[in-house]
Amino acid sequence: MEISQNEFLHLYYYLRLTRALEERVATLYRQGRIVGGVYTSHGMEAISVGYASALQTEDIIAPFHRDMGAFLVRGITPGEVLAQYLGKRTGPTKGKDGNVHMGDLKRGIFAFVSHLADNLPVATGAALAFKIRGESRIVATNTGDGGTSRGDFHEALNFASVLRLPVVFFCNNNQYAYSTPLHHQMAIKDVVERAKAYAIPGEIVDGNDVASVYLTAKRAFQRARAGEGPTFIECKTMRMHGHSEHDSAKYVPRELLEEWKKKDPILKAERMLKESGYADESDFHETKMKVDKEIEAGLEFAEHSPLPEGPEALEGVFAANHIEVLI
């Protein structure tokens, strides 16, 4: 095994935490307690958990809307996430934005905007700053398969490649963009083909295998840190829920979901942990209990947090002082 017990247990813990948190979020949505949209990474947790875990503290992520695991790995707490969803003042955006549209420079997270692929040129720009300053920091960013149809995706890849910037592009290829299947999105079979046009080395990984994502990410991050430029990593997976929790996703063939259910990233991780002798059922149970407790505590925090008051909406349009945030 190329991956140590500690590393794997860390990955497993975050898979569980992400799953449990998003399940709770989906429940809150169904109960009408979350009023905005809810987009989960159910069944795709291995991608964001895997790549974020392979980073160093001083690195930056520019995640997209199915990267809950990355937020958690970078230190956003379940309580903060729930506060964000519930529109509370204690969420990372203080109620100004919802769902996973949250960021924190202190924890190296750029906030996502809905406009898909807008995060990629910005990720590239962070890498540019590191290159100019001669720092060994790198940037990881992610997009869906649908997002790769936007011009900003292509501009970012080209820009990063021409300047050999330390940025690694991930693509969560979950076969659908809302109701649009992959073959209506692109005429190529693998998204990774897109990287060729920009002379960016590309790799395909099993996006449901957290160890593969982690190890592939690690290698790409090393390349980037060594000044060898960007890598593109296509993570094959499947969107197991609707586009958002309001969508029943009738357009997705049931058999396809059944097939992918067997490849669930948590089941897969548990199998590997057992085979390697790293953990057994009782460890899994313990992790689950621990995670559930954390979610409960998080919900307690979020529910007891105050909503912002109306006039707080006016705060923060402009920066007042220069704050030295970077590590």
């Binding site: 529109g87 109620g95 100004k96 934005d97 909503l307 109306g310 909406a313 006016l314 349009v317």
Partner: peptide, 13 residues
């Protein structure tokens, strides 16, 4: 002159 905020009391405001 602000972006449209999410949280209900802010949006209401």
């Amino acid at each position: 002159d602000i972006p449209v905020p999410y949280s209900p009391p802010l949006e209401e405001f």
